[in-house]
Amino acid sequence: MTLLDVDDLSVRQADGHELLHGLSFTLARGERLGLIGESGSGKSLTALAILSLLPAGLTAHGSVLVSGTQVVGAADRRLDRVRGRAVSAVFQEPLMALDPLMRIGRQIAGPLRRRRGLRGAALRAAVLAALEEVRLPERIASAYPHEVSGGQRQRAAIAMALACEPDLLIADEPTTALDVSVQAEVLALLDGLVAEKGMALLFIGHDLAVVAGVADRLIVLRDGAVVESGRTEDIVKEPRHTYTRSLVHSAWEFEAELDRLAP
C-alpha cells in the first residue's frame, strides 16, 4: 500500500524562483527511503512540503498524497487529519520540537490526548509506555527539556512523533546534532521501532554513511533536483551520475584511513 505518493513536487518562492524542481517518488509500508544531498540541495524543503509546513513565502506545487489525502494546497482542517496520524516527523534540533516551559511527560501526553482521546490513568500509562519505547526512564516525564541531555531530548521528540502511531515517519537529520555514540544509539532505536511497527521511513541526511545505514533506497538531490535514485547498495557501490560519484567517492575517501586503522 502506498503511504506517500509525491508527484512532480516543486517549491517556489513568491517571486516565482523555483527551489525544488519536479520531485516524484512513492513510499509504501515497511519501506525506507533516504534523501541525501549537501546543504542547499532541497532535502528539508521536501520534508516541509510533505508536511505542508513550508515557511511563509514558499509554495508547493504538484501533488503530495499522504495515505490518499492531497496535502498540497489543503486547508488546516484537512491537514489535521493527516499530520500526527498518517505522518509525523522528527527534526535535527529537538529543542525546537519541545516546548521549553512544559514538562516532557505533558508534551508527550498532548498528542495522545488529542488524537487518541486518552484521559487520566490511561493517559499516564500511555505516556510511560511511550517513554519506555524510546528507552527513557520514567523520571524523564517530570523533567523540563533543558534538564535532560541532547540524546534524551531527541528520544523524547521521537516518542512524541510516534505517540499516535503514524504510518509514515519523516526523520530530517535526526542525529546530526548528537554525539557519535548517542547517534549510534538513536539510529539503532529508530531502526528497531520502524521495523517493529512496520512504518514507512523517509530519512533525510547529508552523511552518506548514516543514510546508507538506514535506507534501502536512496534519492540523491542537488540544487533542488534529483540527480540519481536507486537501491542503496547499487548507489554506494556503483554511482552512475558524476555528482553522485564525487559524493560517494568523497565519503569512501573520508573514511579510508579509519577503515585502514580500524577495519
Binding site: 555514540s181 547517534q183 554513511a209 554506494v236 557501490k237 560517494v248 573514511e255 577503515d259 580500524a262
Partner: peptide
C-alpha cells in the same frame, strides 16, 4: 565505544567495487 559508533559506509554496504 567511540570507534564502534562511527557510521561507516563499509558497514552498510561492504567495501567499494566488490559486488
Amino acid at each position: 565505544r567511540l570507534v564502534a559508533s562511527v557510521p561507516r559506509l563499509r558497514r552498510s554496504s561492504g567495501p567499494p567495487g566488490e559486488g
